[in-house]
Structure formats: C-alpha cells, structure tokens
Amino acid sequence: MSVAAPPTHAAARAVAATKIYGSGDTAVRALDAIDVTFEQGQFTAIMGPSGSGKSTLMHCMAGLDRVTEGQVLIGETDLSTLSERDLTLLRRDNVGFVFQAFNLVPTLTAIENIMLPMDLAGTAGDSDWVDEVVGATGLADRLKHRPSELSGGQQQRVAVARALAGKPQVIFADEPTGNVDLNTGAEILGFMRNAVDEMGQTIVMVTHDAVSASYADRVVFLVDGQIVDELADPTPERIRAHMNQLGA
C-alpha cells in the first residue's frame, strides 16, 4: 500500500474513493476517485446538485456503504478492511449520525435515544460530557418525553445530541434541517456550530441550502462524483455565486 502516514489532524478522509453502481454499459460512477480530508474540529458542508454524489460520499465516509475502489478512513481505520460487524461497531463507537427525518426510535424517550449508541455498546459513556451535551440542547426538562411528544426542531436537537454523546471521531449530518422551518433550522445549525466551536467536534453535513452551508467552516462542491471546488469561511452569497458558476 502506498498510503502515507495519515496526518494526525484528519478525522476522516477519502483516498481515490470511487463508487460504481451497476456494471457494464449501465455502470454509473457515483464517486469518481475522490480525495478529501475532513479535519478535526472543523464543520464541513458538502454541496452539489441532485445526483452529484454528495449523499453517496457521505454514506461511504460514514461506513453505511462501501466504496468500489480507493480507501475511506475514519481516524486511522481503513473501512475497506472491516467486516460487516466491525463496520457496525465503528459506526456505533466512532461515528455520529443526523438524518433529515426519522432520527429517533419512537419507543424510546429523548434521553434513551441520546444514550442509544452507548447502550448498544453496553458502556456508560462519559457522564460529564453527556451532561454537557444534554445541557446544550436546552431540553433538560423534556428528556423523559417520547419523540412523538417533541416538536420537529426538538427532535433534531435530540438527534444531534445523540450524535455528540458518544464523542465520535466525526459526525455526519444529511440535510439535518430539511424537514423543519427556517427558524428551527437556524436553531439546529447554531447548535451544531456550537458543538464544533465549544466542544471541539467534527461535523460533515450534506446540504443543498446555501444558508445552511454558510454555518460551516468550509464548503466542498461536488459535481458528477468529483470534487470541483472548495470554499473556506463561506457566506450565503459566496456559496450561491459558486453554485451558479458550477451550474452554468
């Protein structure tokens, strides 16, 4: 293997990651030899038009799916070497998730949902850290409620707290504000921003919304399975400008 020693500050990275669906004439290259590194303590947004491969990239980086060629590493672990079971354990212990919707198990209370990955691992977790995360959600008085008794925004905050509670190497968020109104979205993004700034967490977020992406430290633009551009310290205007450029 010709992989150089991984830089210690990378939370997750892809090396020539390629994902091909189907075979022969109908083969589609969803990811085309992507190289990307997500630094520790950074909030990265992945943007791109529909079908650009941004969700596929996220799934592959997060160990939900496997790349066809190339490598994906979480910390120093090469996901392609892991068995299905080890991949599951890696997700449980080292990766956090926030989905667009249906983030919470309806039969569990808010706090049970937050503790879910640790309960699955059979560990108690870092209780000071969990207290801090729970405190940051501002939901201390709603912890015993079930998801159906929480608003959409509250549910997403619980989901972010769940992702944070296990102190994962990296958190992946897939359109976390896609199902909520603007104000609630801002609240959730603020919470995520706070988790990076105050708690030193690493977040990778897929979004198609320029305002959401502007909360990130860095925006990566994806088109046809390739990274075509990057933007540091983005603002909504600069992002839109880039998007228009790419679309043209």
Binding site: R85, T88, L89, R92, F97, V105, P117
Partner: peptide, 16 residues
C-alpha cells in the same frame, strides 16, 4: 424498516 435502518446506522449489530 426505517427504524431498523436507523438502529443499524447508529451501531446496532445484527445480533442485537
């Protein structure tokens, strides 16, 4: 199915 997917995503093993 979605709940099961979620549980698997956040680290529930097949055995669990």
């Amino acid at each position: 199915i979605r709940e099961i997917g979620l549980l698997r995503a956040v680290g529930m093993t097949r055995r669990q």
